[in-house]
Design a protein around this nucleic acid. Structure first.
Lengths: 159, 159
DNA sequence: TTGGGTGCAAAGGCTTTGCATGTGA
DNA sequence: TCACATGCAAAGCCTTTGCACCCAA
């Protein structure tokens, strides 16, 4: 996909970063799995398939960098791992779309929902609390369709 | 405060736990600071003032236990520490009150807002996604009143 | 009495850092 | 060329665990 690469290269250059194979591969790995919420270790495994020599430390350094530039988004599901997904600036369709995460307490799957209802909440908070909201993270815990329809409520963790 | 102690003792017994000085002190420490979002280390420091012999491991074990019983709530502000606050079951006024956290990106202070707007969101998600929401965690990032009014935007972290 | 609870120290597990080498611009 | 980037291994840091002792019930 030359298009992606070009986009990523441009994004990196725009931010004063050198274009390296590792950085491109990490961005690609996340872009190809927009709803997978990968951990550093998982990103490492993905990239290693195409670049076996990459080090885990590079992955950590890169995701930190990309996260600061908002090319990727941090996500904390509370399981001891920090997870990442491609961010708005890293996405091809730069549509403003806030999304929330639904986390199933049974199977641990994570679902993504688009929603802009929170804009009302943010506006209200601006007025009442005099607090300027610039970003938010919403996690909703509960039971997904499959687990609710299943008689047996014990299932493997998948995430 | 004999009332508090009695309440905590009852809560512990109801859950099949023994009543120990350490557990009571940890619950008290969190109850006395309802909006402080303490880390394990901070709880440890608080409790040590009254019980210098307590071990950090006990604090970790106890907060994990209390968290599972929903006597205290876990909170992850994304700064590498897991934080805790007294939960609804641990509170004297057992009023159902959902709250969100406003996190200032400048001074790192955390503010609590009461709001039940999310019930609308949860209801909508139940319908559209067939996902039964039982709990949620909402973090709003931005700039607080003080930091917005201050000309100088560099300040100590307080949390 | 006695099984759950605690303290201490060691071990775990994710993440960061130091340093020498490699490489994009 | 040369400052930035990478790999490797060691160190950091929060949290958990093993084990012997202690104490609430």
């Amino acid at each position: 996909m030359p298009n992606k690469n070009e986009r990523f290269k441009t994004l990196l250059k725009q931010n004063g970063l050198k274009v390296t194979t590792q950085r491109i591969l990490i961005l690609e790995a996340l872009e190809e799995r927009p709803d997978k919420h990968l951990t550093a270790e998982e990103i490492y495994e993905c990239v290693k398939e195409q670049n076996p020599d990459i080090g885990l430390a590079t992955v950590y350094r890169t995701i930190q960098l990309l996260s600061e530039l908002n090319l990727i988004d941090k996500l904390n599901l509370g399981d001891g791992y920090v997870r990442y997904e491609i961010g708005q600036l890293g996405r091809e369709d730069q549509v403003q779309h806030h999304h929330h995460h639904l986390i199933c307490l049974n199977c641990s799957n994570v679902f993504t929902v688009q929603d802009d209802l929170l804009e009302t909440l943010e506006q209200r908070i601006s007025e009442v609390m005099d607090f300027e909201v610039v970003d938010h993270e919403v996690k909703l815990y509960g039971y997904c369709k499959d687990c609710r329809n299943k008689p047996n409520k014990t299932e493997q963790k998948i995430i």
